[in-house]
């Protein structure tokens, strides 16, 4: 469980960028979207999303703006920047390479994604990036 948490913690910025690549969103919607895309496999403490958003905004990978919606509720909506898209591309490449290497080592799989014995290994819950 701790390993899973650590992995998630390290990859939260990538998940946020991946979700924002589809359009502007506020924090709560991002948390829901990550859960939805991962079929509830990636459940993280939602409060830890905000430090990650703050860091990404500082790095100018995302921008945030308060918006008042029709019902009067104010939300901070984030959008990915061109620098953020480039960072996402880079991180996705790194992650895919890393995941593929790990899979080969622990699952005995080939690059094609199949093990010599024909099984698919245990890394089914890999985040959809």
């Amino acid at each position: 469980m701790d390993t899973e948490r650590e992995l998630l913690k390290g990859n939260t910025p990538t998940l946020v960028l991946a979700v924002l690549a589809d359009g502007p969103m506020h924090g709560y919607a991002m948390a829901r979207e990550i859960e939805r895309r991962s079929d509830n496999a990636l459940k993280f403490k939602e409060g830890t999303l905000y430090p990650a958003l703050h860091a990404l905004e500082r790095e100018e990978f995302i921008t945030g703006e308060w918006q008042r919606e029709g019902g009067g509720r104010e939300r901070r909506v984030y959008a990915i920047t061109p620098a953020g898209l480039a960072a996402l591309e880079q991180r996705t490449r790194t992650w895919k390479g890393f995941a593929s290497a790990i899979r080969r080592v622990i699952g005995g799989e080939t690059d094609a994604g199949k093990s010599p014995t024909g099984t698919t290994g245990d890394l089914k819950a890999e985040p959809a990036l």
Partner: peptide, 20 residues
């Protein structure tokens, strides 16, 4: 995508700070 959580394109006013 969670369409109902997307920011609405119309009827939104943009502000720099929220009311606390």
């Amino acid at each position: 995508m969670l369409e109902n959580h997307q920011p609405e394109p119309q009827g939104i006013s943009k502000r720099s700070l929220p009311s606390d």
